[in-house]
């Protein structure tokens, strides 16, 4: 599904990702953990194609294609989705209109028919209900005045509506209370399938009790310092990043 090889990336001329190699198979869930500032969000932006995140060497092959040759919107249409650590507020654009525009834009890029307005409404209502997002929120300006938890649930709503083949969750758990965390985890677990892969970025092990990963990686200073199974996450929680990384 995704092959990252010896990736180096800079932001504002500063190298943040320093030789990262990671391979994610179809249907797998990989967790990337690491201390603040280790480059987790930078990696997610590089994958999503954000301008200003310059890849200086290395490669990213996604479903057999050179991902780096694609613009952000093209990557999205190819099935890449990033749930952002800090979802952006967009005054004047409702969640409903935004998502319909996005779903239709992706369909158009893939040569699929536009979604019928009634069918769309029916689907988004059902998904929103599962995430305890009320109708009123769908009609409000995107993320404007939303609580931290509401913003994160809104990201999962988008994930569910867009149905990507690679979902990257950047600290979707931060700022969530335990009930919201379960809602989000259930939302993600419902979407697990043999065709869909996940890259779950988190600072804490807590989320991984609910979304159980196939592989866990520790990111440190811009590269993968250690990889292992779900147990690695528990070791990290117990011993701290420093000891686990140094033991590698």
């Amino acid at each position: 599904m995704l092959e990252i090889k010896d990736l180096h990336a800079t932001v504002d001329g500063k190298e943040i990702v320093k030789g990262l190699t990671l391979s994610i198979g179809a249907g797998q869930v990989h967790a990337v953990m690491g201390p603040n500032g280790s480059g987790k969000s930078t990696l997610s932006y590089v994958l999503a194609g954000r301008e200003g995140y310059q890849v200086t060497s290395g490669s990213i092959i996604y479903r057999g294609r050179d991902l780096l040759a694609l613009k952000a919107e093209e990557r999205a249409a190819q099935g890449i989705f990033l749930a952002m650590q800090y979802p952006v507020e967009i005054p004047g654009v409702t969640t409903l209109n935004f998502l319909r525009t996005a779903v239709n834009a992706q369909a158009k890029a893939r040569g699929e028919p536009q979604i019928d307005a009634v069918a769309f409404l029916k689907r988004i209502r059902a998904v929103a209900q599962n995430l305890s997002i009320n109708e009123d929120m769908l009609k409000r300006s995107l993320n404007v005045g939303f609580s931290g938890g509401e913003k994160k649930r809104n990201e999962i709503l988008q994930l569910a509506m867009l149905g990507p083949s690679l979902a990257i969750l950047d600290e979707t758990d931060s700022g969530l209370d335990i009930d919201a965390l379960k809602l989000v985890a259930d939302g993600v677990n419902d979407m697990r399938s043999p065709e869909r892969s996940f890259l779950v970025i988190t600072h804490y092990q807590r989320l991984l009790d609910y979304i159980v990963p196939d592989h866990v990686h520790v990111l440190s200073a811009g590269r993968i310092a250690r990889s292992g199974g779900p147990d690695l996450a528990r070791d990290l929680e117990a011993q701290g990043y420093e000891r686990v990384v140094n033991a590698a």
Binding site: A48, G49, E51, R75, I90, F98, L99, A102, L162
Partner: peptide
Amino acid sequence: FYLRSRGI
């Protein structure tokens, strides 16, 4: 970027 990352 947010809009583009959703495929717009």
